[in-house]
């Protein structure tokens, strides 16, 4: 079994994305050969962590100003024939989905997406997904000939180094992507954010519609997150309402988080929200409705008004210094 992982750089550009390392960790558990196909610059800096997490070889492609997914799909298609991987894994990320989608057409292979689990049944990959807001688990097996193409949601597996040395880097030139290559990236905008990243923070404090207004988010949610050295998140209701940017959304159509502590402020706990956070080690919920579904997953549930409980909580934490 040979697995390829479509490797992406972290937003900072100097190391692989955590989701890539998660996929490599899982791949090395089930495959004899694990290799990475990386689109971007700095391939030599990536080779260390990629190797440490299980890749023995990295095929590296520069993308210039073209979209990573377009270059990635073209490069993968040209490499597949000579190297015959059995399974190619992508993170369910922006570029991961682009690359997967285009490659599926080039190879005329189906795709399985939103995977949260991966196993083998003989020489066939079986992808587990959670549907209906995470209430139902479905296993789907590929039929026909490989390579099989699957996208896995970030945070489905833990990223753990396995002690391997740096992967060898083979630089490959980007094949002509035709008109698809005409889309160019003109500018990168980095939205500065303070504190740890949502997916990596040990503490996540999220706010929902129960905050009552956009103005309450900063003092209550960000205020508490800051004191706990955590990150701030949100339910979709307040993202759609424009109170906070999409990047903060936790749930089925947002991010999956698994912090040590998740604090939900004024969030009802719809299944689509729960699926993004119920893997947290500990959950604290504050909601004024004692019947809110969020309490069914909370280790500590406070039936109360966020405007009363949270300011006192913040004050008590500040008093501790």
């Amino acid at each position: 079994m040979k697995i390829w992982v479509y490797a992406e750089p972290a937003p900072e550009g100097d190391k692989p994305a955590t989701s890539t390392l998660e996929l490599l960790t899982k791949a090395r558990e089930i495959a004899d050969t694990v290799e990475a196909v990386y689109v971007g610059s700095n391939a030599d800096a990536m080779a260390g962590p990629l190797g440490e997490h299980g890749a023995t070889k990295v095929y590296a492609v520069d993308r210039g100003e073209a979209l990573a997914g377009v270059v990635g799909a073209a490069a993968l298609a040209s490499l597949v024939e000579a190297n015959s991987p059995d399974l190619i894994l992508f993170a369910q990320s922006y570029d991961g989905r682009d690359a997967l989608a285009r490659l599926s057409v080039k190879l005329d292979k189906p795709v399985l997406t939103n995977g949260t689990d991966l196993k083998l049944d003989g020489d066939r990959a079986v992808v587990g997904t959670a549907i209906f807001g995470g209430n139902t688990l479905v296993d789907t097996k590929f039929e026909g000939d490989g390579p099989f193409l699957a996208a896995i949601r970030p945070k489905s597996f833990a990223a753990e180094p396995g002690g391997g040395g740096a992967a060898t880097v083979e630089q490959v030139s980007a094949p002509d992507a035709g008109r698809a290559g005409e889309a160019r990236v003109l500018e990168h905008h980095v939205e500065e954010q303070e504190g740890p990243k949502l997916e990596e923070a040990a503490v996540v404090v999220s706010g929902g519609r129960g905050l009552g207004s956009a103005e309450a988010y900063e003092p209550l949610v960000e205020g508490l997150a800051h004191l706990l050295k955590g990150a701030s998140g949100a339910s979709r209701a307040i993202v759609d309402a424009g109170w906070v940017p999409y990047a903060k959304q936790v749930g089925q159509t947002g991010k999956t988080v698994k912090p040590k502590v998740y604090v939900a402020l004024g969030i009802s706990g719809a299944t689509q929200h729960l699926v993004g956070m119920k893997g947290s080690d500990n959950i604290i919920a504050i909601n004024k409705d004692g019947e809110a579904p969020i309490f069914s997953v909370a280790d500590l549930g406070v039936v109360g008004d966020v405007h009363k409980v949270v300011p006192k909580l913040i004050e008590a934490l500040q008093a501790r210094g």
């Binding site: 139902t136 688990l137 296993d139 789907t140 097996k141 309490f295 039936v303």
Partner: peptide, 26 residues
């Protein structure tokens, strides 16, 4: 070209303690 091989209910997460705020829940 794919086959669903298993469908099952996801394991539920157990609820913990629930308290009413009496002014000192914090």
């Amino acid at each position: 070209r794919q086959q669903i091989t298993n469908v099952e209910a996801a394991p539920a997460r157990a609820a913990g303690e629930k308290i009413e705020d009496d002014g000192a829940a914090h």
